[in-house]
């Protein structure tokens, strides 16, 4: 039973709610396998995307999810200049509500923006990524993908590799995996380790080979290339040598380990092409599953009594 009208983060969900979303997504995955990939439950509803950061992937995935549910999908384009000028976020959000939207999908570089909108708006707010806080639907689609291969989460060893400190994907996945009782290892350089992150019940490794030993799931993260200029790393070449997923490093994981990446990938920076395209990679399935999971989220939130 989903309690909130909003999906702000995995942090706010119970394990039961996560499982309900995954089960519902399984139903939608079946729908997506049919010839007619559309069902009617959100007929007459309007989903508006409010993206303050560009993201073709997440937005397209949500747009397809909305359309498969028979909802209308509208993109509220935000000019970067108005954000810089400090045009009130609150006014923009209230405008979207007044236009008659039922859902607003928000992506913003500043953590906590979905929470701010949630306080202002009566309609459902879905966090499509906020700062270094959370990206809940990415974690849910990752859980869905892991579940389809590994069946259960309890006792599963999952390694998240890369720029943990700036990654909302990592954060949401840490919450989801720990709530579902998987063992989480973070593999990252000390400069990209969030403060006191071990308190979240995860292991922190700075050695890729040791961290990957016997893991069932490897999640790579996208490295923002500008980290180099900010002094987090000496060079991308050294980063790839230390933390890039290659045939050699992946060989330390279990033979049936799956390799995931939220996309878009920097080949040769966080992941070698041979791994990205290799038979352990489930990266394209993650994309397909993303639609089913986002359908489940929209569908379940539509059913929450306001």
């Amino acid at each position: 039973m989903i309690q909130s009208k909003d999906l702000l983060g995995i942090k706010e969900l119970t394990p039961e709610e996560i499982y309900l979303i995954l089960d519902t997504a399984a139903g939608f995955k079946d729908v997506l396998m049919r010839d007619i990939k559309k069902v009617p439950p959100l007929r007459g509803k309007t989903v508006v995307s409010l993206f303050f950061e560009p993201s073709t992937r997440t937005k397209t995935s949500f747009a397809l999810a909305s359309k498969r549910l028979s909802a209308d999908f509208v993109n509220f384009s935000v000019s970067t200049s108005s954000v810089v000028k400090g045009e009130s976020l609150k006014d923009t959000a209230l405008t979207i509500q007044a236009l008659g939207a039922d859902f607003v999908l928000v992506r913003h570089a500043s953590s906590g923006v979905p929470h701010l909108l949630s306080n202002i708006l009566d309609i459902s707010v879905i966090n499509a990524g906020d700062g270094a806080n959370e990206h809940p639907t990415q974690a849910l689609l990752d859980m869905f993908t892991i579940q389809s291969y590994k069946k259960k989460f309890k006792g599963l060893n999952v390694a998240i590799v890369g720029d943990i400190a700036h990654s909302r994907v990592a954060k949401s996945n840490i919450y989801a995996l720990t709530k579902l009782e998987a063992n989480v290892r973070l593999i990252c350089p000390p400069t990209l380790t969030p403060a006191e992150v071990d308190k979240l019940g995860v292991e922190v490794h700075h050695s890729l080979d040791k961290g990957l030993k016997d893991v069932d799931v490897i999640m790579a993260l996208r490295l923002q290339l500008e980290r180099q200029s900010k002094g987090f790393l000496p060079s991308l070449r050294e980063y790839f040598k230390l933390y890039g997923l290659t045939a050699d490093s992946v060989s330390h994981a279990k033979d049936d380990a799956i390799v995931m990446h939220p996309g878009p990938m920097n080949r040769g920076v966080e992941i070698a092409s041979s791994i990205a395209d290799g038979n352990q990679s489930v990266i394209l399935e993650q994309v397909t599953n993303g639609i089913a999971v986002r359908m489940a989220v929209l569908y379940l939130l539509a059913g929450v009594k306001k």
Binding site: A302, G303, K305
Partner: peptide
């Protein structure tokens, strides 16, 4: 969807 008090559980 909006009028039921319980959220639906999807079956096969």
């Amino acid at each position: 969807l909006n009028t039921k008090s319980e959220q639906p559980v999807v079956k096969r």
